[in-house]
């Protein structure tokens, strides 16, 4: 017979979480021996790059959107932001190639794959809104070109790439929130299911 405490939402949530993701799965101290290739480092590299992207973005946010045009330090922080983004995409694409050739969706890991693809799209959107929020010639050109693509889909009615305020908000609030939340889900799926085992070779 379940007590009142057992029926509480909080108790149920805690039990489900601990059952699905016990601490030794969340923070494991061993890995299956097949996890031994350089290809495995690109996931964590992508995560690390995301951390640097967010950190440098936060520094840029502290001083506002025009600071980096006016100060040498600001320009340097902008350079850090740009190059961490380059590393982020670089690592993410190699991670994607690697996971594809391992067919890493096997064994009930489909949602890990799907969240990864959605994360890639979110990142492209975050990168794009960053490019159009630069407040320089690059953002003028990119936004006036990209408007035709977005308008053609009907998206222009709600997503106006020529509106700096709107793009900056998407870039520094909405898309980072989405990216971080999706990353958390993606990593939690990996921890719950573990790293995909090798194909069985028929001898």
């Amino acid at each position: 017979m379940s007590t009142e405490i057992d029926r509480q939402w909080t108790t149920r949530l805690r039990k489900t979480v601990v059952e699905k993701l016990p601490p030794d799965k969340l923070l494991p101290d061993t890995q299956p021996a097949y996890v031994a290739s350089w290809i495995y480092v690109f996931g964590v590299t992508t995560l690390a790059a995301l951390a640097i992207v967010i950190l440098t973005g936060c520094v840029l946010a502290m001083k506002g959107p025009l600071w980096w045009h006016l100060s040498g330090t600001g320009h340097f922080v902008n350079s850090l932001h740009l190059w961490s983004v380059e590393i982020f995409f670089f690592a993410m694409v190699i991670h994607l190639w690697g996971k594809y050739f391992m067919a890493a969706w096997r064994g009930g890991r489909q949602l890990t794959w799907v969240t990864g693809v959605v994360l890639f799209l979110t990142s492209v959107g975050a990168g794009f809104t960053g490019y159009v929020s630069q407040t320089n010639y690059d953002s003028q050109w990119i936004s006036t070109q990209a408007k035709d693509g977005i308008n053609a889909t009907g998206g222009g009615a709600i997503f106006n790439v020529l509106n700096l305020g709107q793009m900056l908000m998407w870039h520094i609030v909405l898309l980072p929130l989405a990216a971080v939340a999706l990353t958390a889900v993606h990593v939690i799926y990996v921890r719950i299911k573990g790293v995909v085992p090798p194909f069985e070779e028929v001898k």
Binding site: S37, F90, V93
Partner: peptide, 19 residues
Amino acid sequence: VIGLMIVTFISALFLPFPG
């Protein structure tokens, strides 16, 4: 950049992993 990505990918496949 694209060339480096391909080179990095292939190296990751072929280079021996320490440990």
